[in-house]
Amino acid sequence: MQIDIPFIFMALIEIFKALPLTIIITLVPLIIGFLIGIGITIIRIRKVKGLYSLANFYVSFLRGTPALMHIMLIYLGFPLLIDKLAVTFRWTFQSTSIPILLFVLMALSLTAGAYMSEIIRAGILAVDQGQLEAAESIGMTNFQAMRRIVFPQAIAISLPNLCNIFIGFLHTSSIAFIVSQKELTGATNIVASNNLKFLEAYIAAALIYWGLTIISEKVTALLEKRVTVYNRGGVI
């Protein structure tokens, strides 16, 4: 078998058109997951009664299972739940009218939340308690002290991990093609089977993912320099 190199370039252009959906499936879960992660972290650090074990279970289960399972469980399970509720409350609403993308985003947001909470927690614990006490000793509320003193430093400390998780989720977004999303991998599959040139199409896809990853790493390095500027005495 011969590799059709010109086709790789054609495929590259074709597949690239699916980039916006990949970005959505990567970024939306990370943003929602960040908020979930903060919530979970607060619950776990404050040991909020009732929610504490639930939060621990959530993190343990979602980190303990592949993201693909989360997508399948939500994709298969959530419609059942909606339809049950619809019958009970006499809604006219049907689960089939929910776009599949929404299930994917839900599932991956939950996945991201579990990973984010671990990263944020590690960041917060890495900021020494003394600064929090100093802030509280001058009359700041715990919330003010967390938001203004602890959190900015926790994020700066966590940044390398947050960027790693971005790259991880960029790659994870590819499994959305299982539930027929036309993101980069879904598009690759279409290009490949329409032209019966599978290897070429997947080489093209791999190049795109690789390029995106390299760009992310470069951006990370820049960002990191910026947010930890205080450690180098203001020199960027």
Partner: peptide, 29 residues
């Protein structure tokens, strides 16, 4: 706490803030 202030053995300065920002923090917030 608004009527008191504390000086710590380990200083406990806000590391991500400059000297003047450390002093301004309580005055502002």
């Amino acid at each position: 706490r608004k009527k008191t202030a504390m000086v710590f053995q380990q200083y406990n300065l806000f590391r991500h803030k400059t000297v003047i920002e450390n002093v301004m923090e309580g005055l502002i917030v």
